[in-house]
């Protein structure tokens, strides 16, 4: 399991880097999907199979499909890849790299302090997730549901056909 975790983690990192550096939007998206699948495997090796399954079903299997759907409609070609290349000039990297480097140092320091205790090697059953969600975190669930409802109403409003419009 330990090796699985490190392999999946490495794949996630490489794929995520490729998401940023890939010139073609659809290829970048494919790397993002790979990254999500790798993260799902990380969850699985950490003993959270339920979270892993949901990661694949919701993120990789539904949300990313919508991304792909939109990308397909944009008809991106060579010109867009060229423009993308011009945006990714080396100077661009300095700011994010410094900030990310600081985070990395912080993380390394925390790990060195022993704060990152070894992950609990005990599988979390789906039932336990449900009990926690609708017990301790019920307020969060309700807030999320309201947010989703707002999104639903908004989408309905945008897509609504006015009375004076016909086919």
């Amino acid at each position: 399991m330990e090796y699985m975790f490190f392999i999946a983690g490495a794949i996630a990192i490489v794929a995520t880097v490729r998401v940023v550096t890939a010139m073609h939007a659809v290829h970048a998206l494919l790397y993002l999907i790979v990254s999500l699948l790798a993260v799902a495997l990380v969850f699985f090796t950490l003993g959270a199979p339920f979270a892993a399954a949901l990661e694949v079903i919701i993120y990789a299997g539904a949300i990313m499909v919508l991304f792909v759907f939109v990308m397909m409609m944009l008809n991106l070609g060579k010109a867009d890849a060229e423009r993308e290349r011009s945006w990714l000039s080396p100077g661009m990297w300095i700011g994010p790299a410094v900030l990310a480097g600081l985070l990395l140092i912080e993380l390394a320091w925390l790990v060195a302090q022993g704060a990152g205790a070894p992950a609990v090697r005990q599988s979390v059953e789906p039932k336990a997730v449900g009990v926690a969600l609708f017990g301790n975190y019920v307020l969060g669930v309700e807030l999320a549901s309201m947010l989703l409802l707002a999104g639903l109403v908004g989408a309905y409003h945008v897509g609504r056909r006015r009375a004076d419009e016909t086919d």
Binding site: V26, L30, I33, P49, F50, A52, A53, L54, V56, I57, A60, G61, A62, V65, V68, F69, M72, S123, E125, P126
Partner: peptide, 22 residues
Amino acid sequence: NLNIGLLFFLAMSSLGVYSLAL
């Protein structure tokens, strides 16, 4: 024999759509 077997099936079938879309 996965304890999330049903979810695994749903997850795999939800990935199949990429094949057709891509």
